[in-house]
Design a protein around this nucleic acid. Structure first.
Lengths: 238, 238
DNA sequence: AAAAACAACTTGTATATACAAGAAGGTGTT
DNA sequence: AACACCTTCTTGTATATACAAGTTGTTTTT
């Protein structure tokens, strides 16, 4: 088994810097080493470093200023819900607890939240689970996730609790989220949601249906998220 | 007056291709000319072309496949609401009518939808307007926009009706949207919204508060959008 | 006829180089 | 002290070049 395929240098530089920012080695407001310094550090040339920095900039980890340098912005807040990552990175891991309501299980599926499925997806079935996310003792997210049941060794054992699903896929399976589409709407809580969120009848709830696309051809993640925004508004950058 | 500053070549290539895709000269599913062809067409080198293509790819206009080419995806649907553009490009211009509820006017402001303002912003005051957006005879969006009152020649005369505000800024004033932040929540319609949307009391409404950042230093656009999602769910790609 | 090998495309990665333009700090002159 | 200038740092733009790797169609071989 070779989980270790050799990454292109610009991705290695990206992963390294990303990790250092996440680990707070570079803090918000800091300047990254200059592009030339990064060249010597990673033993690559400037276009390569710039490619890594471009991606970090796009994802909101840094901002660049001509003549000044690359300013660290910290972990992008809430890129999660509204543009890329999952709920975990959206609100920060600090005060977020996760209850698994329905454990990951193999299911048949015909469609996914009104998204039509390919034949290849229907054949393999899906990994299905439901989670309730709780912030400061208060339930905020309720989400249903469906993933095609392709061969992901040890997947169900992994970190659905507190780590980001997308990080798991990226680091362990070299599957990157490349984009996706989502529908978002306001609804009122049905009895089930009333129970989960502990809210009265008629309470407004945010609903997100998402089809998430990855670098693995034909591999999509489907998720439906309900969110009680009365105390925590969904926050996102773009 | 020189509205015409010379753009870097990679931006010129980007703008040209973007326009051609928007004008349907390249249709969905088409292949763009190869990178080498684009080089000779625009008389630049490959890294320059690739930079333009990278941006088009990030914004969803094209997808690239190694060995194949650059596949045109058409105008990115709904990049609008949830990641970059304004409501116009989010839903397509076809069936969208705009009613100006409050005409653009100069106002003082102390804050913008709970976003704090800089001193420099407070001093110049803001351009304020409210719009109701109607799709197929049905009111869907109600939005309030506030823009710092810096010198934008002929701005209030321009195209608040049907064109995208962001396109106007980009083409006429070389101001690009570089990002922003937003809060999104579900609420129930207050009496004013009940009237605008023609919905009963307790009807769920989507609310977006946005602070939009531009390439012009210190120039932010603030907008608050209410959306009746009972018939048209907000759709976005990312 | 079917399969394998090849050639001719495409995009992906990476280097080396050069100059432009903005920011910051020091050094002089006034 | 204040200002202008210069040097030196930074990132931005652009070229020229090379090879790797994926796709497609053609040619050759079996």
């Amino acid at each position: 088994m070779k989980t270790e395929e050799k990454l292109p240098s610009h991705k290695k530089v990206y992963e390294t810097l990303r990790k250092h920012i996440n680990d707070r080695m570079y803090k918000e407001g800091d300047l990254l080493p200059s592009e030339n310094d990064l060249c010597t550090i990673h033993n690559v040339t400037r276009p390569t470093v710039r490619k890594a920095l471009d991606r970090l900039m796009h994802e909101g980890y840094i901002k660049k200023k001509q003549g000044k340098g690359s300013i660290v912005m910290g972990q992008p807040k809430g890129v999660g819900i509204l543009s890329l990552s999952g709920t975990t990175s959206a609100v920060g891991k600090e005060n977020l607890k996760t209850h698994i309501i329905v454990k990951p299980q193999i299911r048949q599926w015909e469609n996914a939240f009104s998204y039509p499925l390919r034949e290849s997806e229907k054949q393999v079935g899906c990994i299905y689970f439901e989670r309730l996310r709780i912030m400061n003792e208060q339930p905020v997210f309720y989400d249903i996730t469906m993933i095609p049941n392709i061969n992901l060794p040890r997947f169900t054992n992994r970190s659905l609790e507190n780590k980001s699903l997308f990080d798991t896929l990226r680091v362990n399976y070299q599957i990157n989220v490349t984009g996706g589409e989502q529908r978002i709407m306001a609804i009122t809580a049905n009895p089930e949601l009333q129970k989960f969120f502990n809210v009265p009848k008629g309470h407004p709830i945010l609903q997100l249906d998402r089809k998430i696309e990855t670098s693995k051809d034909g591999f999509f993640i489907y998720s439906q998220v309900f969110c009680n925004t009365s105390d925590y508004a969904l926050y996102g950058v773009f």
